[in-house]
Amino acid sequence: MPRPDLSALDWPRLTDRLVLRPLRVEDVEPIHAFRSLPEVVVHLSHDVLSIEEVRERVVTRIARGRSDALEPLLGLAVEEQRTGRVIGDVMLRLEPCHSISRTPTDAWEGTIGYALHPDVHGRGFAAEAAAELLRIGFHDLGLRRITADAYADNVASNRVLHRIGMRLEATIHARSLGKDGTWLDDNIWGVLREEWPG
């Protein structure tokens, strides 16, 4: 299949309670409101972010969402439909599938990630947004496989990935040094297009 065309996607995407749409520079402040909190970033690959660091992150994700980006990534804001408030951001990173054949594959795969403001945790919004990322990846972009990583002690995120139909494929023991100085186990989740319950 040809390279997935992010510019061909229709926006916004509506779920039962959420609106997903491409990131905009105006999203910097609401995203900073949660990506600057220690309790949010404890399980993320970055530390608390300054407003300037969030701005750089948003601008980079906007650029990677263009059709000619070398490392394509779909960065989306998550709004609560009822209030119109940006309560999180999610991403779907794309890359060609690996091949050890003499004939390279033209299939693509993706990796999802998400972060939401802690005042909306426990309401099922992360699963709702992540399930829509799977729909976009498989239904709209024709991806072959989608994966996600979650540290084993991040019980809530692992629960989300199981709930949306992903399979725990491996646990890599003591893979990453955590922010508290302990080594963390990393759970690798995945689902193939033909396994996707959507």
Rank of each mutant, 00 (worst) to 15 (best):
G122L: 08
G178D: 06
V78M: 05
A63I: 00
A77V: 03
D47I: 01
V59L: 09
E52H: 12
S50C: 14
D140L: 05
R163G: 11
D89W: 12
A150W: 05
L143W: 05
D140E: 14
I188K: 13
D153I: 02
R57V: 01
T105P: 08
H121E: 13
H117S: 15
A156Y: 03
E26G: 15
R35F: 06
T111N: 05
E79Q: 14
I62V: 12
D47P: 13
P30L: 12
L168V: 01
G137E: 00
L37Q: 13
A130L: 07
G198Q: 07
W11E: 05
F34S: 04
V90P: 01
G165C: 08
E71G: 00
L94V: 08
L49E: 10
D180M: 00
A170W: 12
I146G: 03
E128P: 06
S101N: 11
L73G: 01
A152F: 02
L44D: 06
R61T: 00
M91Q: 13
M166F: 09
R93G: 10
I87G: 14
A131D: 13
V19Y: 02
L23E: 03
A129H: 08
E109K: 13
L6P: 01
L141M: 06
P118Q: 03
L184T: 08
S157G: 03
A107F: 04
A156W: 07
S176W: 01
L92P: 02
P12C: 07
H46W: 15
V41W: 01
A126N: 03
L184H: 09
L184C: 15
D106C: 03
P96Y: 00
G198A: 05
L94T: 02
R123T: 10
P104C: 00
L73R: 09
S45C: 13
G181P: 14
G88D: 11
F34N: 02
P4A: 08
G181W: 01
F125R: 15
